[in-house]
């Protein structure tokens, strides 16, 4: 091992040698002054490069780079994908670990409530809804009145889902409008809408609770959650449409 390789010189410059090899390389450099000179120059060059570019770190970051893309409206697909990523972080370091950037308590609890409601009502065969889609106008008027806002039922026909109907539930912050959709194979989605105490707008978030996938968000005074037993990507596409239909 008593040969000084190029890699040794580099690793020596970068402080990347382990202790044993470091001692050997130091000894070898003492015997090879021309190599030691190279090391000296390499270090100077590195230092020069840092002197050249480090000042950039001190510059204020231009505003245009700090603007988070808001593709929610312009590029809905992109923003939803971003939100899905946010959730990935949330899972990575713990849902409640990092405060506002991750999942605010209210929003997370929204996801949980929605997942529970889905788990309870989606398997229901005989009474999945209180008011069927055949009385859609009445259903929407009724639930709108209960929630104190103008609700809409998104059209999800493009994804093969038709409205089954809806029901009124009670949630931790008051009445909940619960709409159910179904595809030809009987797969069901539920949309959970409720007033929120914490009205701060959130990004699109994803959660999974015992097999139920939930995309949820808070917009204005209301929280929305779309639940289904679907892979995230599929549910994401639908959640996007729901969002767009509700916020034209």
């Amino acid at each position: 091992m008593n040969v000084l390789k190029d890699e040794d010189l580099q690793a020596f410059v970068d402080g990347a040698l382990d202790e044993g090899r470091l001692a050997e390389v130091e000894a070898l450099l003492a015997q090879h002054p021309e190599k030691a000179e190279k090391v000296r120059v390499y270090r100077q060059l590195d230092e020069g490069l840092r002197a050249l570019y480090d000042p950039v770190l001190e510059e204020p970051v231009p505003e245009r780079l700090l603007v988070r893309p808001r593709p929610w409206r312009q590029q809905p697909w992109a923003r939803a994908a971003l939100a899905a990523g946010l959730v990935a972080i949330g899972v990575g370091i713990g849902w409640f670990g990092r405060g506002a950037m991750l999942v605010p308590g209210a929003a997370a609890s929204l996801a949980r409530q929605a997942a529970v409601a889905h788990a309870v009502y989606a398997p229901e065969v005989r009474h999945p809804v209180e008011v069927g889609a055949n009385e859609q106008d009445h259903l929407v008027r009724w639930l709108s009145k209960k929630l104190g806002t103008d609700l809409k039922t998104p059209r999800l026909g493009d994804f093969g889902y038709d409205l089954v109907g809806g029901r009124l539930l009670s949630g931790p912050s008051g009445p909940v409008a619960h709409f159910m959709y179904q595809d030809k194979r009987g797969g069901r989605l539920t949309l959970y809408v409720t007033a929120q105490r914490d009205t701060r707008q959130t990004a699109f978030r994803f959660s999974q609770e015992s097999g139920v996938s939930v995309f949820y968000w808070i917009e204005g005074r209301y929280g929305y959650a779309l639940s289904g037993e679907l892979p995230r990507e599929q549910l994401l596409a639908i959640a996007n449409t729901v969002y767009q239909e509700l916020n034209p």
Partner: peptide
């Protein structure tokens, strides 16, 4: 350079769901 950063960030935000946490 800042154009390059901006393009990079746009892609990063859009592809962030592909980043493996941790």
């Amino acid at each position: 350079a800042d154009d390059l950063v901006q393009d990079t960030l746009e892609r990063a935000w859009n592809k962030y769901h592909l980043w493996r946490p941790g």
